[in-house]
C-alpha cells in the first residue's frame, strides 16, 4: 500500500517526530494547536476592551448631538475628546500596535493614485448627498456656518473637519479597533466589523451607500499595506474635498 507523503514535524511538548496533520502527539498526547488555544483564551478580554471603547465613542457622539448650537470651541472640544480617547486606547497596547505607525514600502505612485480616486469619489458623494438631503429632508445641512464668521474660519474648518478626524478616526478604528479585532476574528471579519462600526458611529443612515464602502476600502488598504498612513491620507482628502465644496458653494452665495 503506497502511503501519501505527509511532512513530518516535532511535537510541541516532547519533541517526538510526528506528522503535520496529527492533531495530537502519538507519544505524549499533547494537542498540537497550543498557539490557537491560547489565542482563543484571550478573546474575552479583547472583546471587553472593544465594548468599552465603542461605548465611550457612542457616549461622546451622542453628547455632541445633544448640543444644539455648535460653536467652534465646542467642535474643537469634541475633536479633542475623540483624539484623547483614540490615543489612550491605542497606546494601551503600544508594543503590539506601534508597527502600523511605520510606513514600509512607501510609494508615491500609490499615494497619488489613491488621493486622485478619493477626491473624485468624494466630489461625487458630496454632490449626491446634497441632492438627497434636499430631496428627502427638504433642507441643506451644512457645517460651514459654524466656521463662517470667524477670521480664520476656513483654516479652523479644515483642521476640525478634515485633519483631526482623519488622524484620530483612523487611529481609533483602523488602528486600535482593527488590532483588537484581529485578536478575535479573521482579517475578513475584522474589515467588516470596523467598517460597520465606523458607519454606525456617524449616526447617518442615508450615508450607508458611501460610508460603508469607504470604510471597507480604508480597512482593506490598512490590512494590505500594514500601515495606517494611506488611510489617514485618503480620509483627509475625502473630508478636505467636502470642505472645499462647502467653501465654494457659500462663496457663490456671497458669504
Amino acid at each position: 500500500m503506497e502511503k501519501q507523503h505527509i511532512d513530518a514535524t516535532f511535537c510541541e511538548n516532547c519533541q517526538s517526530e510526528i506528522l503535520v496533520n496529527n492533531n495530537f502527539c502519538r507519544v505524549c498526547g499533547q494537542a498540537q494547536n497550543l498557539k490557537e488555544v491560547s489565542f482563543h483564551a484571550n478573546k474575552k478580554q479583547n472583546l471587553q476592551q472593544i465594548a468599552l471603547f465603542f461605548a465611550i465613542e457612542i457616549i461622546v457622539c451622542i453628547s455632541a448631538l445633544l448640543i444644539e448650537n455648535h460653536t467652534i470651541a465646542i467642535s474643537l472640544f469634541f475633536d479633542f475628546v475623540m483624539a484623547i480617547t483614540a490615543i489612550l486606547f491605542f497606546c494601551n497596547n503600544w508594543s503590539e500596535n506601534k508597527f502600523i505607525l511605520k510606513w514600509p514600502n512607501f510609494s508615491i505612485k500609490k499615494v497619488v493614485g489613491l488621493v486622485v480616486v478619493t477626491v473624485i469619489v468624494s466630489y461625487i458623494v458630496q454632490f449626491l448627498v446634497g441632492h438627497l438631503n434636499r430631496f428627502i429632508f427638504n433642507e441643506d445641512y451644512s457645517f460651514y456656518f459654524t466656521y463662517a464668521f470667524h477670521k480664520y474660519g476656513n483654516y479652523i474648518m479644515v483642521l476640525s473637519v478634515a485633519l483631526l478626524p482623519a488622524l484620530f478616526e483612523e487611529l481609533a478604528y483602523r488602528g486600535f479597533l482593527m488590532q483588537r479585532l484581529l485578536n478575535i476574528v479573521d482579517e475578513k471579519e475584522a474589515i467588516y466589523i470596523t467598517s460597520i462600526l465606523f458607519f454606525f458611529i456617524h449616526f447617518s443612515m442615508i450615508s450607508f451607500f458611501w460610508m460603508l464602502p469607504f470604510g471597507l476600502l480604508l480597512a482593506y488598504v490598512r490590512i494590505k499595506t500594514n500601515t495606517l498612513w494611506y488611510g489617514v491620507i485618503m480620509h483627509f482628502f475625502f473630508n478636505l474635498t467636502a470642505c472645499f465644496v462647502e467653501i465654494y458653494d457659500f462663496s457663490n452665495l456671497g458669504f
Binding site: 457612542i58 451622542i62 448631538l65 445633544l66 467588516y192 466589523i193 460597520i196 462600526l197 454606525f200 449616526f203
Partner: peptide
C-alpha cells in the same frame, strides 16, 4: 455564515437606535 460580525453589528445598531430614540 458570519455570526460574530452580524451579532456585534446587530447589538451595536440596536443599542444606538435605542439611545437615539431616547434623545
Amino acid at each position: 455564515t458570519k455570526p460574530t460580525t452580524a451579532l456585534i453589528s446587530g447589538l451595536s445598531l440596536y443599542v444606538i437606535i435605542q439611545l437615539l430614540n431616547l434623545i
